[in-house]
Design a protein around this nucleic acid. Structure first.
Length: 920
DNA sequence: ACTCTGCGGAGAGGA
């Protein structure tokens, strides 16, 4: 039986004498939780009395990692009656898994075997773009193609073409790359040819058609399948599976008789994954494709590319213990020293990096340290922020765990899955990929969007047939996916990604260890930002905007532009970009969201006007992320290396999200200036992803609007923008004239959030009302709506996240505005909760924009109706952040209606002042 | 208690 639970006490390992001699054991006090069956609420089954589980022999190594509070799983345990008390103990069949819900990557285990410190360094500094890695990836892709029945030359051409941009950056010529890949592919083909003979032997008697050509796609092969094990807490993607056993491809050479140990460990990981999925694996194959072709192996015997090896129980258990070390370190937030393993530092490729990182960050390391440690404040900063990023990573891992801890309905209710799909058809695409179609049977919403990568399964994302797939199209009726395998899709699950956290960590590392000293002096308040004063007027009729552009252009270090709602910050950015480009500078334009990047880019294109050809502009990002009208500027990854490289390098303006700025391609680029829009929505490391690429930077944002979205509560919730505004007020300019709101509307937000400094840019703005709009008459409105700010008191239905009474009232209000001549498309409705947004959407005409406060940030409408959705009290985190009210109240130009329960709203001082303002 | 956008999935190699 399996025993699972939470460690209740410190664990001690001791030795006892048994009939087999001296043996180690550890007695673990475990508060048990239910295992297995999905959908059970684990907590309800908890027995608060700890049970003793004895871990024997080598499992004591994993016991040493345990801390109270950690999760532990022991498979195939045996009961053990000890003085009338039921205990459990490991058996020869048992696996002991520490923190099983923490999914460890196969590559992580592979790196950790080599050296735990290597694992850490990879995480911290990333793997830069280099040819051996790109070539290795290409060879793997071609291998996959061959297995799926694609023709060799066609595959090589297509795969090399796909990597055009990367190859261009590496200065590689497509012909020589193709030749390189061809060399390795020969070994693969030769080996497949061998396999073909045995496959035919096997297939002939059964199928009776030995004449038929061998097709890997029809044989007992699978390629590149993503596997997840909820028992072992491992995830990974095997290169290939042949008759149920893993095949790992290596592009390098290995002239030894045996496979490299780390490669064996990798294959053993896949064996564990396959075991969980019903297989039983005792051999693995490693294919070293740089070894000489088959014809030479008759003389030398051991030069054949393929090395088969048997995987015993001992290896599999060793691998689980390794995995436990990683999970325990990740959960505890430990930094590996290298002493955990037995690697020899002097043979290590990363020895220098390792010593430098250890030296600079003053970390304990087996390789030793070189160089002076960073100043104490920088090391303290690193500790704080890397800790915060790791906390984010653990939250991502909690999302993985939900793949099996939540049942289908729970996941659907959480918007994390689309369930009850009806599989319609599969269609084979070129390169052996598949297009899958499924129909939706309910109208349920979900987080899933076009372009997302999802787990497509025939029922369960971990236990059933499942495959990583991309959503090509998604609407109310159905979904179209592309995937490597033809899964009969009935369910789609969000597939969590660590990519963003990985990139945050690398950005933090790069700022501290590769960053310019002067830059760090400014960031750590050891120096003040300096400015040159350009002798030029950039904006005629707005002093603050003009000063902002002058600061941006003249900054030697950084400039900060504080742009409250409607103050023209996007225009100011665009003007600054133009000024920089005209001075011959290369500019990076970035923001957290694709939408903000495209908005800023649109303004820049407008500013540049006819000069666009001369100052080439490029948008880097994925097809699904980039707005359609910016597609002509989007940099394609595939193509001729020289052409792609030129497109990027010749661009004077490059626009990309901060996440993309952390990509390998973008990290090869450098700029004179980085302009980051909506900077108050970025974490500090997120901001660095962009600023690391440039000599100086300009942050534009408003910290009185919504802060960064993070999963864990920590230092990441304050933006670098906000911190620097406090630290270096002289580097900042606040745009104080707004071009959006009627004076009456802006009064409260200006007073409450901007010390009364925000004012209308022009009399026209101050006095604008609905009467200015074509065919609209305020006289036609009910008397209580004629003022630009109105309050409608609705007691509410008392529900938590929806309010049908408010929704009904909002629908009436919209009718009233329509009756007065307002165009539906000029009206927006804002609510705090998504549930209320869908309630409202079902009651108002589709032309009316209805969305959450968070998603409304950045846009505006003539008329805004806010549905507060709070009855009786304002309790709940959503109401606590007053910046959310600021966003909601500053969206309208000419009319604002607040709908809510006056009793609830008056209970809070800020909401109370808002109420007074709206009612007078 | 809620809000929710990003990302070439994971892994590719070098003695």
């Amino acid at each position: 039986m399996d025993v699972r639970g939470t460690v209740a006490d410190e664990v001690e390992v001791r030795s006892v004498s048994t009939s087999y001699g001296e043996t180690d054991l550890a007695e673990v006090q475990l508060v048990r939780t239910e295992t297995g069956a999905a959908g059970h609420d684990e907590r309800s089954l908890e027995d608060p009395e700890p049970t003793t589980v004895t871990l024997w022999n080598k499992w004591t190594e994993s016991a040493e990692l345990l801390e109270p509070g950690m999760e532990l799983l022991v498979t195939d345990a045996e009961t053990d009656d000890y003085r009338g008390e039921t205990r459990y103990k490991t058996t020869g069949e048992s696996y002991v898994v520490v923190e099983p819900s923490f999914l460890v990557n196969v590559t992580a285990i592979r790196n950790w075997t080599e050296c735990p410190r290597l694992y850490y360094l990879n995480k911290l500094s990333g793997v830069p773009l280099n040819y051996p890695v790109v070539k290795g990836t290409l060879v793997h892709e071609v291998f996959g193609d061959l297995l799926r029945g694609r023709e060799l030359e066609e595959s090589i051409d297509a795969r090399v073409e796909e990597r055009g941009l990367q190859l261009g950056l590496l200065g590689e010529d497509p012909e020589s790359v193709a030749e390189d890949v061809r060399q390795n592919a020969k070994a693969i083909e030769g080996w497949l040819e061998q396999g073909r003979l045995t496959e035919e032997d096997r297939a002939a008697p059964a199928a009776g058609n030995s004449e038929r050509a061998f097709s890997p796609a029809e044989s007992s092969w699978r390629s590149e399948q993503l596997l997840i094990s909820e028992t072992f807490g491992i995830r990974g993607r095997a290169d290939a599976i042949r008759r149920g056993a893993p095949v790992e491809l290596k592009t390098g050479k290995n002239l030894k008789k045996e496979p490299r140990f780390k490669d064996k460990v990798q294959a053993a990981c896949y064996a564990l994954l396959l075991e969980e999925h019903g297989g039983s694996v005792d051999t693995g194959t490693l294919l070293y494709t740089k070894n000489s072709a088959l014809d030479r192996n008759e003389e030398t015997g051991d030069l054949t590319p393929a090395k088969e090896f048997s995987m015993g129980d001992g290896l599999l258990k060793y691998v689980v213990r390794l995995r436990n070390e990683i999970a325990a370190a990740e959960v505890a937030g430990d930094v590996p020293t290298g002493y955990e393993g037995n690697a020899t530092c002097e043979y290590c490729f990363e020895q220098d990096t390792c010593m430098v990182v250890s030296g600079r960050l003053d970390q304990e390391s087996k390789a030793g340290q070189i160089g002076q440690p960073l100043p104490a404040e920088e090391r303290e900063y690193f500790e704080r922020f890397s800790g915060a990023i790791e906390a984010e990573r653990r939250e991502v891992h909690r999302e993985y765990a939900k793949l099996w801890e939540q049942d289908a309905q729970e996941r659907a209710d959480d918007d994390r899955a689309l369930i009850d799909l009806e599989f319609v058809e599969r269609r084979e695409l070129e390169a052996g990929r598949w297009e899958l179609r499924a129909r939706r049977t309910g109208g349920a919403s979900s987080k899933l969007r076009e372009g997302d990568l999802v787990l497509a399964s025939d029922g369960h994302p971990v236990r059933g047939q499942s495959e990583l797939a991309r959503i090509e199209r998604l609407d109310e009726d159905g979904v179209v996916l592309t995937a490597d395998e033809p899964v009969a899709v009935t369910r789609l699950d969000v597939y969590p990604s660590e990519l963003t956290t990985d990139r945050l960590l690398v950005a933090l590392h790069d700022m501290l260890l590769k960053g310019d000293e002067r830059r760090k002096d400014v960031l750590f308040d050891r120096a003040n930002p300096e400015f040159d004063a350009p002798d030029e007027t950039f904006v005629d009729n707005n002093d603050a905007q003009d000063e902002a552009v002058r600061k941006a252009v003249g900054a030697r270090d950084c400039a900060l532009i504080h742009g409250p709602p409607g103050t023209g910050k996007t225009h100011t950015i665009a003007r600054a970009v133009r000024a920089m480009v005209e001075r011959g500078e290369r500019v990076l334009l970035s923001a957290f969201t694709n939408r903000a990047v495209d908005n800023a880019l649109e303004a820049v294109l407008e500013q540049l006007g006819d000069a666009i050809d001369e100052h080439r502009v490029v948008r880097v990002g994925s097809e699904s992320g980039v707005r359609e009208d910016m597609e002509p500027y989007r940099l394609e990854r595939a193509g001729d290396p020289d052409e792609r490289l030129a497109e990027l390098e010749d661009a004077r303006v490059v626009a990309a999200t901060t996440a993309t700025c952390g990509s390998r391609v973008m990290k090869e680029q450098s700029f004179d200036a980085a302009l980051v829009d909506e900077a108050a929505q970025l974490t500090e490391p997120g901001t660095f992803a962009a600023t690391n690429l440039a000599e100086r930077f300009v942050l534009v944002g408003d910290h009185e609007q919504l802060p960064p979205v993070v999963r864990a509560e920590n230092e990441l919730t304050e933006s670098l923008f906000e911190r620097l505004v406090d630290l270096h007020p002289d580097a900042g300019v606040m745009l104080d004239r707004q071009y959006r709101m009627n004076q009456r509307i802006q009064a409260f937000p200006s007073r409450e959030f901007y010390d009364g400094t925000l004012r209308p840019a022009e009399p026209e703005v101050a006095g604008r009302t609905l009467d200015d709009l074509e065919g609209v008459s305020r006289e036609a409105l009910p008397a209580d709506l004629r003022d630009p700010v109105a309050f409608v008191d609705v007691e509410g239905d008392g529900s938590r996240y929806t309010d049908s009474e408010e929704a009904a009232r909002v629908a009436e209000l919209i009718d009233a505005y329509e009756a007065a001549g307002v165009d539906r498309a000029d009206i927006g409705v804002i609510a705090p909760f998504r549930a209320q947004v869908s309630e409202l959407s079902s009651r108002v005409p589709p032309e009316v924009a209805v969305d959450t406060v968070d998603r409304f940030q950045g846009s505006s409408e003539e008329v805004i109706v806010v549905s507060f959705t709070a009855t009786g009290t304002l309790e709940g985190p959503i109401f606590e952040d007053y910046r959310r009210i600021n966003v909601a109240l500053t969206r309208p130009k000419r009319a604002l209606v607040l709908v809510g329960d006056s009793r609830a709203l008056s209970a809070d001082p800020v909401y109370g002042r808002m109420l007074e303002w709206a009612r007078t």
